[in-house]
Design a protein around this nucleic acid. Structure first.
Lengths: 161, 161
DNA sequence: TCCTTATAGTTACAATTGAAACTAATTGCA
DNA sequence: TGCAATTAGTTTCAATTGTAACTATAAGGA
C-alpha cells in the first residue's frame, strides 16, 4: 500500500537458491519433523514442553546439577532453563535445593513423580528415534553417525564431558 | 515452594536418554547452529527474519506464486507466511497484486529492491553451506545427500513438484 | 578488610509465535 | 439460480521466547 513498487523481471542471472536441495533447509525440516513427532507423544499427555522434557532428560542422567550445568548440557540458554525449572518444580517433577557451599547455586533432581514421567517418555522417544533410523540400512546409519560427529565437532558447548 | 517433594534416588533401572547420542537432539543442535550462522549474515544487515528470507528465496525461484504456494514450498504455515509477506511488502521488497481470475489469491514477486537483497544474501548462504560441507570429504557428502533424501522422503508437503 | 568484578539465577518487557476465529471470494451441487 | 461448503488470506488474543536489566552471592585482589 504505502510502497508502490513494480515487480522486477526475473532474469536468469539471479541464481536463486534451490531450497529443497539446500542443506540448512533440509536439516531444518528434518529436525523439526522428528522433534515435533516426539513432542506430540508427551506434550498433551503430561503438559510438558520440549524444553522441560530436555531438562528432565539431563536430570535423569546427571544428578545434582545446577541450573547452569543443565543449560550447558541441553544447549539452552539460562533463561529458558530457569523458566522450565520453575514450571517443573511447581508441578512437583523436579526437586530444587540450595547448594551447601554456594548459596547462589541450586541442586536439582527429579522427584518420584518426575521419574515416573521420565520412565514413560524416554522409551517412547527412543522408539521414535528407531522409527527414523529404520528408514536407513545399517551402512547408512553408520555413515550418519560419523557425519554428525564431524559436523557437530566444533559446535561450542556441545562437547562438555 | 508450594510442592515440597523429596528428590528420588537415581537407580540404574531408569535408563536415561543419552542426549548427546540421541539423533533428534543432535539434528536439532546441528540445524539450529547452521541456520543461525546464516541468519546472522543478513538479520542485522537487512532487518530480515529467517522466515522472511525463506519467502524471498522461493519468490526468487518461482514467479507469481500465491501466499499458499509460498507456504507449501517453505514448509511454513499460512499465518507465518502472511505475516512475513506483510513486512516484506511494507518494506518494498515484495510486490503483491491480486490474481485476475480469483480475487482471493495474491500474485507475488520480488521488487527490484528485493532482488538486490536476494543477490547479496543468496551467495552468502551458499558459502555457509559450503563451509559446513567442507568438514566432510566427498564420500561423506554423497552419503549425507542420500541419507537426507531417504529421511525426508515421507515428510508431507515437502515433495511438491 | 574493602571494593571491584564475576557468577547463578530471576524478573520485566517487548517481540515473536500459535491457535482459533474471522472476512471475502469461489466452488459444488441440489 | 441459491446456498452450503471450501479456500485464500488476515486478525485477534494468548502463550512463548529473547534481551536486558536486576538481585544475591561469591571470588579476587589492593
Amino acid at each position: 500500500m504505502s510502497h508502490p513498487r513494480k515487480p522486477a523481471p526475473a532474469g536468469a542471472e539471479h541464481a536463486p537458491l534451490e531450497l529443497e536441495r539446500f542443506l540448512p533447509y533440509r536439516l531444518s525440516i528434518l529436525s523439526n519433523t522428528v522433534s515435533q513427532t516426539i513432542a506430540n507423544d508427551y506434550q498433551r499427555r503430561y503438559d510438558l514442553s520440549m524444553t522441560e522434557w530436555r531438562v528432565m532428560a539431563v536430570l535423569a542422567r546427571f544428578h545434582g546439577l545446577s541450573a547452569r550445568e543443565v543449560a550447558e548440557r541441553t544447549a539452552m540458554d539460562k533463561v529458558a532453563v530457569s523458566r522450565a525449572l520453575a514450571r517443573l518444580v511447581e508441578a512437583g517433577r523436579v526437586h530444587r535445593e540450595t547448594h551447601g557451599n554456594d548459596k547462589r547455586r541450586s541442586v536439582l533432581s527429579l522427584t518420584e513423580a518426575g521419574w515416573v514421567i521420565h520412565d514413560d517418555v524416554a522409551p517412547m522417544a527412543r522408539a521414535r528415534e528407531r522409527d527414523v533410523l529404520a528408514k536407513l540400512d545399517e551402512e547408512e546409519r553408520q555413515w550418519l553417525t560419523r557425519i554428525l560427529d564431524k559436523l557437530l565437532d566444533e559446535v561450542p558447548g556441545l562437547n562438555s564431558r
